[in-house]
């Protein structure tokens, strides 16, 4: 395995090259095996402390990180803004410095403002993992999605599914790209592994500028649906409705939802992913979501080994 220097922090997929991503996915494969054992836990990070610091609500991401830390035998601390001194007006800097003073080795940060984890990384000596910042990035989601796609397409028993190669795959990321940190991280990661990425959505929900995005763009899902090997549905953030970017949820479903009709027109063997939580009946029909063809449960399951890989990589070795 080639040596790849991963920086002390994981702030985004931007800045990771193909080799760094593949290395993390290989580690995730090792940790997937750990999860299947009678005792699904290793002593790798004994004595380390991982704090999840969430200024935005989340269940699955926070639980997934905490579970990953515990399966590496690290201790965990949980900080949620709603029950903290932030409600008394404490600044971000004071908050993270206070948490770090309690002795933590990694801060897993989610914040509504893009760039907040990068700021935190400048203030603290601990490692920082971006668990979602504004509409910027959500790198561990992209990594677990890469893993899920490779695993689904590879023959069983392959060590790193598919060798980490997505060349020749056509992946469509559908929906509210403009407000999605998942879309950005996924587009970068899929492209780094060799896939061709198409963003699909109404013009009002695509970013105003796509400079630097290694992607194609389409505003008609039906025109590209038959060419996609992977359909990645984004959550429609219904609060955007108020900003008049969409005429109605029903019209969105008509044009961009994975309806039963569209599901029948998917390529044979096409994969359907969704980062959750799903709006059933909007971006995906309830019946399609329940079908075995969607990989939503696998995505959640793969979140833990993927985050174990990230924490192990950042916290192993001398500082």
């Amino acid at each position: 395995m080639t040596e790849v220097a991963l920086p002390r922090h994981l702030l985004g997929i931007a800045g990771l090259d193909r080799a760094a991503i593949v290395e993390l996915l290989s580690l995730a494969a090792s940790f997937s095996e750990v999860a299947e054992r009678p005792i699904p836990k290793v002593p790798a990070l004994r004595g380390k402390t991982v704090a999840t610091v969430f200024f935005e609500p989340s269940t699955r991401t926070r639980l997934s990180f905490e579970s990953a830390a515990r399966r590496l035998s690290a201790d965990t601390m949980t900080f949620t803004a709603a029950t903290s001194s932030v409600t008394k007006g404490e600044s971000l800097r004071d908050t993270v410095e206070t948490i770090e003073a309690m002795g933590v080795d990694a801060l897993v940060v989610r914040h509504r403002a893009a760039g907040a984890p990068a700021l935190v990384a400048r203030w603290v000596t601990a490692s920082v993992v971006n668990a979602g910042d504004g509409a910027h990035e959500h790198p561990t989601q992209a990594l677990l999605d890469c893993y899920t796609i490779l695993e689904a397409l590879a023959p069983p028993g392959a060590e790193l599914p598919g060798g980490g190669d997505c060349s020749g795959l056509s992946i469509g990321i559908v929906g509210d790209v403009a407000h999605s940190r998942v879309a950005r991280s996924c587009a970068l990661a899929f492209e780094a592994l060799g896939a061709a990425v198409t963003l699909v959505g109404p013009r009002t929900l695509l970013p105003p500028s796509l400079e630097g995005w290694p992607v194609a763009v389409a505003s008609d899902l039906d025109a590209v649906l038959g060419e996609l090997d992977v359909v990645y549905l984004l959550r429609l953030q219904t609060e955007r409705m108020r900003q008049a970017r969409l005429p109605s949820l029903e019209e969105y479903r008509e044009r961009f939802g994975l309806t039963e009709g569209r599901a029948r027109r998917l390529r044979p063997g096409a994969l359907v992913l969704h980062p959750g939580p799903m709006n059933r009946g909007v971006e995906i029909d309830a019946s399609v979501a329940s079908e075995h063809a969607t990989l939503v449960t696998r995505q959640v399951r793969n979140g833990v080994p993927t985050r174990m890989a990230v924490l192990f990589r950042l916290l192993g070795g001398a500082r």
Binding site: S26, A29, S30, A44, G316, G317
Partner: peptide, 14 residues
């Protein structure tokens, strides 16, 4: 592990 980067060689199979 606390001293140097430790790499996984390969997936365990039992």
């Amino acid at each position: 592990i606390p001293l140097r980067p430790v790499r996984a060689e390969s997936v365990t199979s039992m």
